[in-house]
Design a protein around this nucleic acid. Structure first.
Lengths: 407, 407
DNA sequence: TTTATTTGTTGCCTGTGACAACAATAAGAT
DNA sequence: ATCTTATTGTTGTCACAGGCAACAAATAAA
């Protein structure tokens, strides 16, 4: 594979080859985010000539990564335009290791989840155990794929801090992992290329591309589960990762004077104040699922519970206020029990945000529930594996189902 | 002028014309940031062919925006490479209205400040007064320019929230301006194109391009003067502005439980806790300049003063910790009295940052003083006017000195 | 049916960068 | 001093990607 030449500033000169690649990539990105699109839409969206679009789409079809459907009924005058879609034969494996289970899923380039398999683990599994489980599941799922399938690779979403360059999990406090070379492990099990990133980060991208954040250039995503609060941010259409890849840890911003600590031991952070366990405690429903908790919250009339929820809404609002002041996003998207308490009293949260941010920052702000739910993390993880293909459609290798290493 | 066609996602197809523009722009950006560079350096930095660089540089010379110096002595084997620099004939006016004065400066494309003029105003001037003062100064300075000068336009750095699209100052609390169409006013006075942005935002860019943040892809800038704390952020080489342009208001993040309010009336924000006035109070030196205050801080042995400084360092450290957790930047750059207290006790600030951020976020972090001082805001403001030229060197109009409207 | 409108296809053209060959200019070896 | 090696600038030629115009195809409206 030929590497893109990059200069001192990461800037690359544009030659003829790059031009072609750029335009192929542009079309693939439009199709990835937009699903089925007409060729005439691609023409106007890219500003390229009809004949050029025709040429580019033909190349993408020959590469087998887009497929054409017949002319769509448009209702308007003129010859109906042909439509193209990302090929459902192109798939990726999405892996999400959690404290109580590891999930593997097959996701198509079009964003559909073809299959999902979840293996519960007793306690938080060691990294090599999780890798082994993931490897087994991938091999199982690969066997069930049609032979026409072409595999982009494996995307991992891990609740922790990831060194993206080599896919090493630097620290995942909830899983008790330190410096775990997870990408290498799964690559060994499967023979497929593997990419790793933070779970909230990839979920954010999924909601931005396919969910509540569609079309936003700036959005903030807050996800909360049993292991604390994770965050993802999109700024000017690109994911915020930070210089070393450890940015957007929105749960760990210290914005309260409290001594309560979070799962990383930091006091007064958003994660320390807005705790799922506090809700479980007041409802006496330890070990409940997110769905059960959500139901309990929406139905509660218990004054003690309401007091806890109100306090959490106020604290969450302060956190969102801080983030709005910093990022001035179009959307703040909430997932997990953060979304549950938001739905319990939207006005209270909005009021709290208003009280802790500048007018200019919260004026155009919309707070929303995530659309994709637990699928966000899988779709986002698969997106990691699709990224090289979207960036360089003609120069990225795909793998046959039969190539996945045998068990 | 032909507009660049942009699609639904702001994505543009790449045609031949764009390729040329992209490469010209790339070279101009390298020269803008790097000053004098050899052609062979440009070749390796861009990955383009020698002959292509030759062609591109020739075009830029014919446009009169770069000039070639003679072959530089390199000391190494082989024919010495010719060097090129941004032309010092290309200039922009930088304007910075403040509460007590309005400053106008002439800045070259190479980042040199040719002249600077400051007019003190009694109290905070009305927007149209400031615009008039700026207009007069620009016309004066234009007369003194050599006739070979070619003017890119006027860049304004304003301490407030700016709607960038039309250059309207939405709110500048320190100046008491609301919805002031400053760009239009100065355009009328001078006949030159005008761009406006927040003062801290442009200073951040200046430090990133020419100062302490050189080469950083992610950096956070905190500036503090008599009017509070302003902030700027660079993420993945681009300036954080937010969806509507009101982002990166780092002084107004509410991260303390205190009731002390800032200049915008928000309680518990960074600006509310780390106040210049508290230092002036303890030193009994009301109305002191930044330089005087800096000297006083560095020499103080007064225990009450030290206590105030320590408290401010602790609070500032918490703010930087929050920002480090969010952005994971390479540098945090401090300017104004924030830099003064940092120099007083660096270790204490660093310790406070460590206490309020994740290890991964502060491990590679470097906290630095700004290099450019009060010039940062001027160089940054001029950068606003240079931006179109850097983005499209062959399609951007420059103005003769004689074209500036007569008084 | 006819007309207007839009889209896909084809062949040709143009502009841009790559490439190779040669000249120019330096340091080091002889 | 001369030759060798290394690097860079210049020039002419070439290849390739996208634009463009003309024509065919497919629809709605007249």
């Amino acid at each position: 594979m030929k590497l893109l030449h990059t200069g001192a500033n990461g800037a690359a000169g544009q030659n003829r080859e790059n031009t072609r690649q750029h335009n192929l990539s542009l079309i693939m990105n439009l199709l990835y985010k937009g699903g089925t699109l007409s060729r005439s839409h691609l023409t106007s969206a890219t500003g390229l000539n009809r004949s050029t679009i025709s040429d580019l789409v033909t190349e993408l079809e020959e590469l087998g990564i887009v497929s054409h459907t017949e002319a769509a009924f448009s209702g308007s005058v003129g010859r109906p335009s042909l439509t193209v879609s990302p090929s459902d034969d192109v798939v990726a494996f999405a892996v999400n290791p959690e404290i109580d289970a590891t999930t593997v899923s097959v996701v198509t380039l079009g964003g559909k989840i073809l299959s999902k398999r979840r293996v519960a683990t007793q306690s938080s599994p060691a990294a090599h155990d999780a890798a082994k489980i993931a490897g087994e599941l991938i091999k199982e799922l690969a066997k069930e794929l049609p032979t026409s399938s072409r595999i982009a690779g494996v995307g991992l979403a891990v609740p922790g801090q990831i060194r993206i360059d080599d896919g090493v999990v630097r620290l995942a406090p909830r899983l008790n992992w330190v410096e775990a070379p997870l990408a290498a492990m799964i690559r060994q099990h499967t023979g497929l290329p593997v990419w790793v990133d933070n779970d909230a980060t990839v979920s954010c991208m999924a909601e931005r591309n396919f969910g509540s954040g569609r079309g936003a250039s700036h959005c903030v995503y807050l996800f909360a589960g049993s292991g604390g609060i994770g965050g993802g941010v999109v700024v000017s259409d690109i994911q915020l990762r930070g210089a070393a890849g450890y940015g957007s840890e929105l749960g760990h911003i210290k914005i309260f004077d409290s001594n309560r600590i979070d799962f990383s031991g930091l006091p007064g952070t958003l994660e320390a104040m807005v705790k799922r366990d506090d809700l479980l405690e007041v409802f006496k429903m330890f070990g409940a699922t997110d769905e059960e908790l959500d139901l309990e919250i929406s139905d509660t009339t218990d004054s003690k519970a309401i007091k806890v929820i109100h306090q959490q809404l106020d604290d969450l609002g302060r956190g969102i206020g801080v983030l709005a002041t910093i990022f001035n996003p179009e959307f703040v998207i909430l997932e997990g029990f953060l979304d549950s308490i938001f739905k319990f009293d939207r006005e209270r949260l909005i009021k709290a945000v208003r009280a802790s941010s500048l007018n200019s920052a919260h004026d155009g702000l919309v707070i929303r529930s995530g659309e994709l739910g637990s699928n966000a993390v899988l779709i986002g993880a698969a997106g990691l594996a699709f990224a090289p293909l979207l960036q360089n459609p003609s120069g990225t290798e795909l793998f046959a189902q039969s190539k996945v290493a045998k068990a």
